[in-house]
Simulated scan of single mutants.
Amino acid sequence: MFSKACEYGIRASIFIATKSSKGIRVGIKDVAKEIDSPEPFTAKIMQILTKNGIIHSAKGVGGGFEVSSEAVKSIKLIQIVDAIDGNKIYSGCGIGLKECSEEHPCPIHHEFKKIRGLLLEMLTKTTLEQLASDVKSGDFFLKTLNTND
C-alpha cells in the first residue's frame, strides 16, 4: 500500500521518536540499521522528513536526528505519508488504472473506496507519540526478529 520509502520513513520516524524521548539523537547509520534500510536510501528519506519538519537534524559533534517532545505529540502519521508518497493513496485506483471513478469504476473500486476511507481516518488520528509509545512498551516492534542469530 505504501511505497518502500514511505514504510522506511514511518519506521525511521518512530525509531527517532523513541530515542528522542530519552534525549538521544541518532545518526544515519543507527537509523538505517534499525529500520533495515540501505544507508544512502535512508539518507534521502531523512532529507525529505527534515525538509517537511517531521524530523530535526543537528550537525556536528553530538548531532543527529531528533523529534522534539512537542512535535512528537502533534505529528500525525498522515504527515509522514504525505511528505513521502503524496496523497495519491487516498484517491488512486486500487489496481492502478489511470482512470477509475464512480462513473467508470474498476472491479474493486467500491470496496477499495471504503478501505481508503478507513486508512485516511487511521492516518489522520494516529500520532507519532502513540506509535513510539507502543514500541517503547515492547508490545510492538519495528523490525522482524532474526531467528538465525
Rank of each mutant, 00 (worst) to 15 (best):
C93R: 10
I108V: 13
I95E: 07
G117V: 10
I48S: 12
I14K: 00
F65R: 02
K44R: 14
E7H: 09
S20W: 13
F41G: 11
F140E: 10
K33M: 09
A83P: 07
L97C: 07
S101C: 13
I84A: 14
I95A: 07
P105C: 02
L119P: 01
E39A: 08
Q79W: 07
S37G: 00
N87G: 10
K33A: 13
D30F: 00
H109V: 05
E102K: 06
A5T: 11
Y90G: 03
L120K: 14
M46W: 04
L118K: 15
S91Q: 10
G94N: 08
N87Y: 05
R11F: 03
F65H: 10
I48T: 15
G64Q: 07
T50V: 14
V61Q: 10
I14T: 00
S37I: 00
V61N: 06
I28K: 08
L145C: 01
K136A: 06
T50G: 04
A32H: 04
Y90L: 11
D36W: 06
M46V: 02
S20E: 09
S37N: 04
A32G: 07
V81H: 12
L123F: 14
N87E: 12
M1F: 03
L145A: 08
T126H: 03
Q79M: 10
G27F: 04
M122K: 14
G23D: 02
T144D: 09
L123S: 04
P40V: 02
C100K: 05
D85V: 05
H56R: 13
N146K: 08
G92H: 07
A71H: 09
Q47D: 15
I48C: 09
S57H: 15
G138Q: 12
H110E: 15
T50I: 06
I55K: 08
G9S: 12
A71L: 09
E39S: 07
H110V: 08
E7L: 13
G62H: 11
P40T: 02
R25I: 03
G62R: 13
K22Q: 12
K4D: 15
I84Q: 13
C6F: 06
A17M: 03
D134T: 01
I95F: 03
K73P: 01
E7T: 11
K113F: 08
H56V: 11
P105G: 02
G96A: 07
K114Q: 12
M46C: 05
N148E: 08
L97G: 01
S137N: 03
A83F: 06
Q130Y: 08
I108Y: 08
H104A: 12
V26W: 02
I28A: 12
H56A: 13
